[in-house]
Structure formats: C-alpha cells, structure tokens
Design a protein around this nucleic acid. Sequence first.
DNA 1: CGGACAAGTTTGCCAC
DNA 2: GTGGCAAACTTGTCCG
Lengths: 98, 98, 98, 98
Amino acid sequence: MATENETAPGPGHNSEKAKVGGISADRLKSFVERIEKLEEEKAAIAGDIKDVYSEAKGVGYDTKTIRKVVALRAMDASKRSEAAALLDTYCHALGILS
Amino acid sequence: MATENETAPGPGHNSEKAKVGGISADRLKSFVERIEKLEEEKAAIAGDIKDVYSEAKGVGYDTKTIRKVVALRAMDASKRSEAAALLDTYCHALGILS
Amino acid sequence: MATENETAPGPGHNSEKAKVGGISADRLKSFVERIEKLEEEKAAIAGDIKDVYSEAKGVGYDTKTIRKVVALRAMDASKRSEAAALLDTYCHALGILS
Amino acid sequence: MATENETAPGPGHNSEKAKVGGISADRLKSFVERIEKLEEEKAAIAGDIKDVYSEAKGVGYDTKTIRKVVALRAMDASKRSEAAALLDTYCHALGILS
DNA sequence: CGGACAAGTTTGCCAC
DNA sequence: GTGGCAAACTTGTCCG
C-alpha cells in the first residue's frame, strides 16, 4: 500500500456495503458529479464569452484590441490586490494590527 | 485604411460625441464589461471546483485520481455525442428521419 | 510516420555517415549541449538568487515580504509593457502610424 | 514580539534616519535590486533556451523529444553525483582518503 | 509534509 | 486545414 495511488479513506476493514478496496463509491460518485456539474457551468460561461467576442467582431470591433484591454484591466486588478497583500505583510512585519 | 485592422463600426463621418477614429468608446466599454463579468463568474466557478477537490482531499481522497475519473468520463461523453452526431449524419444521408 | 514521435529532418535516404533513422546525431548533440550549458547557467543564477534571500534572512529580513515586493514590481513592469502594446494596437486599429 | 514575523534587523531604538519599525529601507532596496538584476539575467537565459529550441524546431527536430533527452541526461548527472557523494561518505566512514 | 510557486505540457482559438 | 499563440491544467520543486 505504501507506494500505491489510492483514492480511499479508511483503508481498513472493507466490511460495509458500498466500499470496494476501502473506497466509498457513493461518496466518490458524489464528488465527481459535483465537479462535472461545475465544469459544465464553467464551459457554458466560456461559451458566453466567446459569443460576446463574436458579437463585438460582428459589429466591427477588433477582438485583439478588446482582449488586450481586458487583459490589461485584469492585470490592474491583480496588481491592486497584490499591493493590498503587501501592505498586509508590512503590517504584520511591523507588528501593527493583528 | 484599406488594409488596416479596424476596430470600428461605420468608419465614416466621425461626428457623434464619443467616437474616436470611428470607435464608439461606450460600446467598447460595454463589451469589455460584459466580458469581465463573465470572466469573473468563470473564475468563481473555477474556485468552487478547487474547493470541491480540497474537500475530497480533506476526507482522504486522492485528487489526482478523481481528476482522471472526471477526464475519462468527459472523454466518454464527448465520444458519445460524436457517435450520436455521426448517426444523425447517416440518418440524413439515408433520408431517414429529419 | 503519421502518428509517430520523430526527431528527424529529412526522413529519406539515410545514406550519410552520422544519420540514424533520418536523425543527424551530431546536430542533435550540438543542440542538447547548448541547452545544457544554458540550463547550467540558469541554475547557477537561481542559486545566486537563493543566496541573496538567505543573506537577507540572515540579517533579519522577512523573505516573504521581499518576495512580495519583487513580485509587485515585476507586475508593474509587465503592466507597463502591456500598456505600450495596447497603445500600439490602438494605433494600428486607428490606422495611425505603421 | 516573540512569535511575530519580522522584517527587521535591530528591532529596537528606531532612531536612525531611514528606518521604519526597525526596517532599513536602503538595505531592503539593495536586496530587492540585487534580486531583480539576477531575475533579469535568469529570464534572459530562459529566453536563450527558448531560442535554441525554436532553432532546433526550425530545422525539423521535435522539441519534446529533445526536452526528454535533456531531462534524462540531467537525471543521469544527478544520479552520478549522488553516487559520488555516497562513495565519498563510504571513504570517510572507512577512514580512507580525506 | 503540506501547501505555494514555477515550469512544462496540452488544448482550444484565431489568422492565414 | 494548418500552424502559431495564448490560456488552462498538470506536474515538479522549494519553502515553511
């Protein structure tokens, strides 16, 4: 068992109804299904994004430019939260605040 | 302007208020904001997926294995719809059904 | 050849001295050695960076904070060049300049 | 102060010119700049490596295979020095050589 | 050892 | 249809 890839809590007795090799199949199934549902939603939104770009292109906009604008603004936002995190780090380093 | 990349509907008169070089800034802004909103939702869902994996790991499951399971099922689903599409194509070719 | 992984220019005659399966061993060796030399230099520099962090930590600085500062400034630089690229894109979109 | 994260040499008197909360801003700046310079060099070399791969690809080689070759040789080298270290340990343990 | 960060690989998209 | 480009995911490494 040492070097094996396991997907199993409670590696032991294997006596309950739905466990195989220590795996609770029901629970695993539940996790998988939750993930699949979320992945589906994510894919749907990705499709929506594509649609918006298509629409913009359809009325004459250059998607490349729009992508640049979006990326730049995302970087701004990211930079802003990083700066906040830095400030927080400073505060800790200086012993100010909790 | 002929061979140029354009980001402009109606490249002509340039007389309305918020247009520069044929670009409607308002409309561009609208597109950008719609995309950003969708990207945000997408990121949120990606976060949810991460959370589910974390939860699964927290109760002893191996996330790597679960990822494999999800990928395999996605491939199956893809294959299945591909097969369905092929069947549909055949049906059309044979004049069966709509 | 279709689905094979190949590392071979000129898949054909295989008649020169140092070719095996269409691979020029000498040339391959040359590429590999150039890469290895560069990787070595890169690793050396990475080591130097580690040393600087260690030195800073040794005199009482918090490496986490320094890393944040470095990351933040790197993001600034990246943002700046992205902004320049955006401006360039705009110029093209507007037909200004080349 | 015992359990705090500190970014400060000499946490005490706080009386010199450029110290805030025990942090010497100049010294911090120096560390950051040294790191940034090294990071820049590292990035340059990484770029060179990319260029070599591109060149190899340009004359028909499969970069993925080359990467595998490089990785294998690196592993071999690592293994070899590990073996040498082991031999050295043995020599010391047996009192042979220095 | 466990998570955080970087590197590599893969996949999907867009232009040609 | 293809090939490059960019983004997402996966994997390996390093620090705490």
